[in-house]
């Protein structure tokens, strides 16, 4: 099963490599990883997407908790949550008809065109991973020049929060 693990960790150099090292050393997979400091500059928030059986996920969370720099974590997929990922995608929009078609698709997906050149559009799309996949799916493969995805971030719904 796919799990989204949200981690608060000390914002120190080396903390990220401990997490990444744990996954490679124990043979767990990382589908995506995003990390940045929080409003408290001493803390970083990491969102990690991984796959595994319940037993493996239990070990992953225990092993993560064992890292000294991990302050707290939750498995977002255990409850109602919101998941968002941002994608920047540069597409070929040289011909007039494709230009209009791409613009329509961007509107349908509630995306934004951030940059325009004579031959390209650079588009921002935000949503679940599936939505981003779907957008890529509707484009003509040859049109796509470059794709940048932020990796998943997430937060629990309602009053539940991951804070110290």
């Amino acid at each position: 099963m796919r799990h989204i693990i949200s981690i608060l960790l000390e914002n120190e150099s080396g903390a990220l490599s401990r997490v990444a090292g744990l996954f490679s050393a124990r043979g767990y997979n990382i589908e995506s990883l995003s990390v940045a400091p929080t409003d408290d500059p001493t803390l970083a928030r990491m969102t990690l997407v991984t796959h595994g059986t319940d037993e493996i996920i239990e070990q992953i969370t225990k092993q993560l908790n064992k890292l000294i720099e991990v302050v707290k974590l939750i498995d977002l997929t255990e409850g109602a949550h919101i998941e968002r990922e941002m994608m920047l995608i540069k597409v070929d929009a040289g011909a007039r008809d494709t230009r209009e078609e791409v613009k329509r698709l961007v509107d349908i997906f509630r995306g934004r065109v951030l940059d325009v050149s004579g031959k390209t559009y650079t588009i921002e799309i935000t949503g679940s991973g599936q939505k981003l996949d779907a957008f890529i799916g509707v484009l003509n493969k040859k049109q796509i020049i470059e794709v940048v995805r932020s990796g998943v971030t997430g937060i629990a719904r309602g009053e539940k929060a991951l804070t110290i």
């Binding site: 037993e55 239990e58 070990q59 225990k62 092993q63 908790n65 064992k66």
Partner: peptide, 11 residues
Amino acid sequence: IDPSSISKNVK
């Protein structure tokens, strides 16, 4: 004392 030792190999 180490939670990660519990149910690691044997449930």
